[in-house]
């Protein structure tokens, strides 16, 4: 009897073990996600429906959708949204194309291949602040190297911070410089998973390098291209540190006329200069929505484009 009970208990425990322990193993992630992901997200949503003054020891008043209504009529919000989209397109499109090309090059037998592959990731591991400060000096108006180089061919000098187009170009360049290598490595990893015999067969059929790239490599990379496009969309629309540090004025308004203020920077200005936490939270949620929409659009687009190649 005793052994029977003992056995039953052991059986019960082992069942609990097989059923329960997987949950236990993934529990830490969900605990962390709950505390640092989900809770702030929901709390921000709650804050966005309030008039919330961070300075006045967080006193707040429920105002419903008033913050969202104000935001939709705020010319500075729309300005920031336009800047964000412009900087995102200017940085992401060339970045991904360049990454694809670099990955293609790195996929060949090269000398010092590992060193080169490590090398393309270097910009990504350097500090964003250091990178931006260095580039801001390169793009300096009076003594910047970019203007010096342009001067050699008779162009400029350009006041990079002053104009909308030039500031967007400079900021996009900084972003692209940091992320191209990272995306190239992801493409490279995926390229190496493409079966070699496909290329051999194509060779036999007399396909050129360019044809192989278009007909084999790109279609086979489809899932990866979708992944990088979605990830770059999420990252690119959240850009904040680069425009903040690019301004020599040290203020979060993104230039004298807000010509390079992004939505994330606008949110920062409202939250941490104006201390209007409710309004900043409304901007944050709207940005989240915008990112989701663009990520979905991109997902659908890249899926289609890659399918056309089949």
């Amino acid at each position: 009897m005793a052994t029977y009970l003992h056995q039953a208990r052991r059986a019960g425990l082992s069942r609990l073990d097989t059923k329960g322990s997987p949950y236990l193993y993934i529990l830490p992630f969900f605990l962390l996600f709950g505390a640092f992901g989900l809770f702030p997200l929901l709390y921000t949503a709650y804050v966005s429906f309030n008039d919330w003054d961070l300075l006045d020891s967080g006193s707040h008043r429920w105002v419903g959708l008033a913050n969202y209504r104000e935001m939709l009529q705020d010319a500075y919000f729309w300005n920031a949204l336009g800047n964000t989209l412009s900087i995102w397109v200017l940085s992401t499109v060339p970045q991904l194309l360049a990454a694809l090309w670099i990955a293609h090059l790195l996929n060949h037998r090269l000398r010092a291949r590992t060193a080169l592959r490590m090398g393309v990731l270097l910009p990504n591991v350097t500090s964003i602040v250091a990178v931006t400060i260095v580039f801001t000096q390169l793009f300096g108006r009076d003594f910047g190297m970019v203007n010096w180089a342009l001067g050699l061919v008779g162009i400029g000098p350009i006041d990079w911070q002053a104009n909308t187009w030039s500031s967007h170009l400079a900021i996009s360049f900084i972003v692209a410089w940091r992320w191209t290598g990272y995306n190239a490595l992801i493409y490279l990893a995926s390229m190496q998973a493409i079966p070699h015999h496909l290329y051999e067969a194509a060779d036999l059929d007399g396909a050129s390098q360019a044809q192989q790239f278009r007909r084999i490599t790109v279609p086979m990379l489809r899932p990866t291209i979708i992944f990088t496009t979605v990830i770059s969309t999420i990252g690119g629309l959240q850009i904040m540190a680069e425009p903040l540090l690019f301004a020599s004025s040290q203020t979060p308004t993104g230039g004298s006329d807000r010509q390079f203020q992004t939505v994330a920077l606008f949110m920062y200005e409202q939250g941490f200069r104006e201390f209007r936490f409710g309004y900043a939270s409304a901007v944050a949620w709207t940005l989240c929505l915008v990112i989701a929409i663009f990520a979905i659009i991109n997902f659908l687009l890249t899926r289609r484009i890659a399918k056309d190649e089949d």
Binding site: T136, Q137, G140, R141, D142, F143, S248, S249, Q250
Partner: peptide, 13 residues
Amino acid sequence: IGSSQEWNNGFAK
């Protein structure tokens, strides 16, 4: 712009 990096350079140059 006062106290910016460029302004600091301005003194030196």
